[in-house]
């Protein structure tokens, strides 16, 4: 049994909050540069150039890539041979988010009650925390700040099994086309297929933290990812929705067994600033 201090978790989460908001990951940055080189629309090309410049300024000056520094979504995989000491785990995560967002000059965008008061919590807590117990004696933390320009364009459909692959394709392409400029294209499309209603939406979110240079390990789903990317880019929505060849940088699908009577499909969209940072303790 290995022990890990709650304070070490707070420190890690604080650093991840800042790193994720300042440093665009290499896979996304490279995809923006590649899109810029291949884009046909002169205006879209200029926009993509500005986005790569923006990522460089953010990196060099430790400035947020986007002013919407998001709600902190935290995925933790806790090894079953780890004993967390010195504090409550959830409080430790929130303490880390508060520290990172305050000390990192990140925007506090969380309100305490979603419907009535909507009062800002002033430290961007609470995080949305997803816990998983895995073999081993380590803790892996992935922090993904989620902006709501793109989050608001998410969709869920309880498809019929008979809708099949064509039904999934239509749902995805319609969702991206209807979102148009709102989620700040070029986007990353996260899709969760299968499970139950909450499992599908969780998988869609999880799909967004997979590097976009990596395809689904199942060749059938990997091919569907490629086909969907081509279809989404054929909509013409383009960078910032102003027309062009690059509406999405990638489509990532995660799947899970489901019930004989159903086929849940969830779509979670991320903007070009698809941010996440991770650490293993």
């Amino acid at each position: 049994m290995r022990t890990i201090e709650a304070a070490a978790i707070s420190e890690a989460v604080a650093k991840l909050s800042m790193d994720a908001n300042y440093f665009l990951t290499d896979d996304i940055y490279q995809a923006i540069v590649n899109a810029e080189q291949n884009e046909e629309s002169p205006l879209a090309k200029e926009i993509l150039t500005t986005l790569s410049e923006n990522a460089c300024i953010a990196r060099d000056e430790h400035m947020p890539i986007c002013q919407d520094t998001g709600m902190a979504v935290v995925f933790m995989e806790i090894g079953q041979d780890v004993h967390i000491v010195g504090g409550d785990l959830k409080q430790a995560v929130d303490a880390g988010v508060a520290k990172g967002y305050i000390e990192g000059y990140l925007r506090k965008s969380v309100v305490d009650d979603p419907l009535f008061e909507r009062k800002n919590t002033k430290d961007n807590t609470p995080a949305v925390l997803h816990l998983d117990i895995v073999p081993g004696d380590k803790i892996k933390i992935v922090l993904a700040p989620k902006g709501f320009g793109s989050e608001n364009m998410s969709a869920l459909k309880m498809c019929k099994p008979s809708d099949g692959v064509e039904g999934v394709k239509k749902f995805v392409v319609d969702t991206v086309r209807n979102a148009g400029p709102n989620p700040c294209p070029p986007i990353v499309v996260g899709i969760g297929i299968g499970g139950t209603v909450e499992k599908a939406t969780f998988l869609a979110k999880k799909a967004l933290i997979r590097p976009i240079s990596t395809r689904n390990s199942d060749p059938k789903y990997a091919q569907l990812e490629q086909e969907l990317l081509t279809m989404v880019n054929a909509t013409g929505v383009g960078p910032q929705g102003l027309g062009g060849r690059h509406t999405a940088l990638a489509v990532n699908i995660e799947h899970y067994p489901t019930h004989i009577a159903g086929m849940p499909v969830a779509i979670n969209i991320n903007c070009h600033a698809t941010r996440h940072a991770e650490i293993v303790l």
């Binding site: 500005t50 700040c184 903007c271």
Partner: peptide, 11 residues
């Protein structure tokens, strides 16, 4: 329209 996510450039 300003470029969404070009927040450091715009600043």
């Amino acid at each position: 329209a300003a470029i969404g996510g070009a927040a450091a450039v715009i600043a």
